[in-house]
Design a protein around this nucleic acid. Structure first.
Length: 519
RNA sequence: GAGCCCGUAGCUCAGCCGGCUAGAGCACUUGACUUUUAAUCAAGGGGUCCUGGGUUCGAGUCCCAGCGGGCUCACCA
């Protein structure tokens, strides 16, 4: 490995520290008594007399220094933010030996090193709250030069670390130097905890179901396939957990939810990562009408908790998450945006309508798929404010209950925001014979060439035969909801480690890497 | 999968129509400076110009192939 000049220098500094008897990676715990933000926000020096933080210990990364001879200013960044340090030579080196200041601090410490300081807070002549350092200790040496991002008084950023490839591959660097990036992930975490709070508060149970499944079901998507060596069977990474959660409802849990990773072996783009996080919830004795009310409360609550508001700006558009949301049937929505009533049309009429509207179709598309195409092409983009689209054609929804009064439809809704689906829910199909029939229809679609059609799951059918109470279920894409609430336009910006092609030389050659039995 | 764009110092970028030893700011090194803040001042070091071919007297620049990334579209929740 070729080291750059700066990397070599840091390794030399490391060596010199060791020669001076300073352990660059000491083992002891550090007793931190204050955080940067806490001091910045809470420091009180009314009347010119410092009132608090007069004996504090902080730890963090050294992010910059301005040396002025026998005194220096430096930036310390901890988990909460940044604070300035004031380091005077004769303060940290009270005796004759000025090595700690002259050599260790000025020469051997580098930007990015973790240090611990002890001292007191004061306000400089320029008005900046600062820690006057009395003791300084190296906690961990950094061997790689960190990009130095500078900001001036107007907040202009210079030399930002912006290359998406490097930011995603070295997210640790991105998080260290780009505070706004950290903010997005804090919000993501808040979103998930708010959602948990909301569900737990209603007495629903968080559960975990298998990610490795012998039959991939519950959604229309292509799976990742793997192999279990002991069982000697192929397994699939789950594309959905719906069928397992329903088994739990069969077993008597009346409200269950799971927040977890799903895996889909499909294309990647701005809104798709091969693994993503979904929240699914099933509540017994409820229907999709009830669920629409619940989702309004949930989304409004989450938006409030994450952003502090129910109105959120996305791509320059103000989106209001306060309920109730507009409810529009799929047929009415298509009529509204195309002027055509498709409620009575059969497959061939729909196919010719698609051609008329300039939508590409092929023979593998059934009635449901054709309607979905029209909707996706002509309606979706108009649904900016939160809108429920309800009552979908039965052909495209094999796991939802038939509509109580509208033949040919199922009790399903999707929530659209800014032209994108963010939630999907049904009155769940609990008629085992109907369910068997629908899955058999899926098999026929598969034979027609639709390789995303669902597979038969006999154990799931058996569970329904034991009896599942009337139940409503909901799925929400956590990544996409996070994007909406943080005004991010790429899924990569809300995933710590989005999937990337491996860098050359960063992994073993495929032959060596290939484990026995995997494919 | 297709089209377009990008890849030059640790970071952000310039480098014209192919032509001197490949540049700038920050970062880094040396020196000065005890309340600075994009600290300042002086001097200095640092390059696999993504990789491999080709054209040419001469390639960072032009051509071909590949690798990686971004955007758009397609596919897809």
């Amino acid at each position: 490995m070729q080291l750059s000049e700066q990397e070599l220098l840091r390794r030399e500094n490391l060596q010199k520290l060791r020669e001076m008897g300073i352990d660059p990676y000491p083992a002891e715990a550090v007793e931190v008594t204050a955080y940067a933000r806490e001091v910045q926000e809470g420091f009180n020096d009314e009347g010119g007399e410092p009132q608090n933080f007069q004996q504090v210990r902080l730890a963090g990364r050294l992010m910059g220094s301005r040396v002025m001879g026998k005194a220096s200013f430096a930036e310390l960044q901890d988990g909460s933010g940044r604070i300035q340090l004031y380091i005077a030579r004769d303060e940290i080196c009270p005796g004759e030996d000025k090595e700690l200041y002259n050599t260790v601090f000025k020469k051997l410490l580098d930007i990015g090193d973790f240090i611990g300081v002890e001292g007191f807070a004061f306000r400089t002549r320029m008005g900046e709250i600062t820690i006057h350092v009395r003791e300084l200790k190296l906690l961990s040496k950094s061997l790689h030069p960190l990009p130095v991002v500078k900001r001036d008084e107007e907040g202009n950023v210079y030399d930002a670390f912006t290359d998406p490839e490097q930011r995603y591959r070295q997210r640790y660097v991105d998080l260290t130097v780009n505070p706004h990036v950290k903010e997005i992930f804090l919000k993501r975490s808040k979103l998930i905890s708010a959602m948990r709070r909301f569900f737990d508060g209603r007495g629903w149970l968080e559960v975990e179901t298998p990610a490795l499944q012998p039959v991939h079901g519950g959604a229309a998507a292509r799976p990742f396939k793997t192999f279990h060596n002991t069982l000697e069977i192929p397994l699939y990474l789950r594309i959905a957990n719906e069928l397992y959660l329903k088994r739990l409802v069969v077993g008597g849990f009346e409200g269950v939810y799971e927040i977890g990773k799903m895996f889909r072996n499909e294309g990647m783009d701005r809104t798709h990562n091969p693994e993503f996080t979904s929240m699914e919830i099933y509540v017994a004795y409820k229907d999709y009408n009830w669920m629409m009310g619940m989702v309004e409360q949930l989304v409004e609550y989450v938006a409030q908790e994450v952003t502090g508001h129910t109105k959120v700006e996305y791509e320059g558009k103000m989106i209001d998450f306060a309920g109730p949301y507009r409810r529009l049937s799929m047929y009415d929505a298509i009529q509204e945006y195309t002027g055509t009533d498709i409620s009575g049309m059969d497959e061939s009429a729909l196919r010719s309508l698609c051609r008329q509207l300039g939508i590409a179709v092929d023979d593998s598309m059934g009635k449901g798929k054709l309607i979905d195409e029209i909707f996706g092409e002509k309606v979706e983009e108009h649904l900016i404010q939160p809108t429920y689209i309800i009552d979908y054609p039965i052909e495209m929804t094999p796991l939802a209950k038939k509509h109580r009064s509208k033949p040919g439809l199922v009790e399903r809704f999707e929530l659209f925001v800014n032209g994108k689906e963010i939630a999907n829910a049904y009155s769940e199909l609990n008629d085992p014979l109907d369910q068997r029939q629908r899955l058999e229809d899926q098999l026929r679609l598969a034979e027609r060439g639709d390789f995303e059609a669902m597979a038969m799951d006999e154990d799931f059918l058996r569970s329904l035969e034991y009896g599942m109470p009337p139940t409503s279920g909901l799925g929400i894409g956590i990544d996409r909801l996070t994007m909406l609430l943080t005004d991010q336009h790429s899924i990569q910006e809300v995933l710590f480690f989005p999937q990337m092609r491996p860098q050359r030389g960063s992994i073993y050659e495929p032959e060596k890497k290939q484990e026995e039995g995997s494919e």
